[in-house]
């Protein structure tokens, strides 16, 4: 069951990411990122993070991607021109990205026995559900960082309003 979920939605996420890479129009890239985010929400759910699965759908594919699509439509962004780009990106960057992937895969595969397997759903131990555990941690131990994020959001709102004003 979990293997089937992982294969289906992992392949969907990977296909969406590759589509993001190969599409030339920004709106196609944005919509394929929505596919990636929805598949990742299913994977989060299968890993026992129900709260994060819901937050992924609401915050990422709901709020952030709508913002992206609004800006793409507002600026009337067309297909990107086919430029040569920077040569360093092609000669160093792409092999570098491949090398990072190979290194990470090598480490994960060589340590796969230590990493163990994961059953479907959460098992946090003492019989609490995921959202209770998250909120208990968030509102007791992590209360100060949680409050600081609200200030961060406030500053971001003010910054966005100031930056997007007409006369800058």
């Amino acid at each position: 069951m979990q293997l089937a979920l992982f294969i289906i939605f992992g392949a969907l996420a990977l296909g969406g990411a590759l589509n993001l890479l190969f599409q030339r129009h920004p709106i196609n890239s944005a919509l394929s990122l929505v596919v990636v985010m929805m598949s990742l929400a299913v994977l989060y759910w299968s890993l026992g993070a129900e709260f994060l699965a819901a937050a992924q759908v609401i915050v990422y594919s709901g709020a952030i991607m709508v913002l992206f699509v609004f800006v793409i439509m507002l600026l009337n962004a067309g297909e990107e021109e086919h430029t040569t780009g920077s040569r360093a990106a092609y000669t160093v960057g792409i092999p570098g990205a491949a090398a990072i992937f190979c290194l990470l895969s090598f480490v994960f595969l060589s340590e796969r026995n230590a990493l163990s397997t994961s059953a479907i759903g959460g098992d946090l131990g003492n019989g609490v559900d995921n959202i209770a555990a998250v909120s208990a941690m968030l509102f007791t131990k992590q209360l100060l960082p949680f409050e600081v994020t609200s200030i961060l959001i406030l500053v971001a709102i003010l910054g966005a309003v100031v930056l997007a004003r007409k006369e800058l």
């Binding site: 944005a30 990107e80 992937f101």
Partner: peptide, 28 residues
Amino acid sequence: VPTAYYLILAAMLFSIGIGAFLIKRNVI
């Protein structure tokens, strides 16, 4: 599912992200 598979999927997505970051010419 081995946890390593999830991590390798994440590594794949991250590498594709690096590639897209370097290849794409549109700031959005």
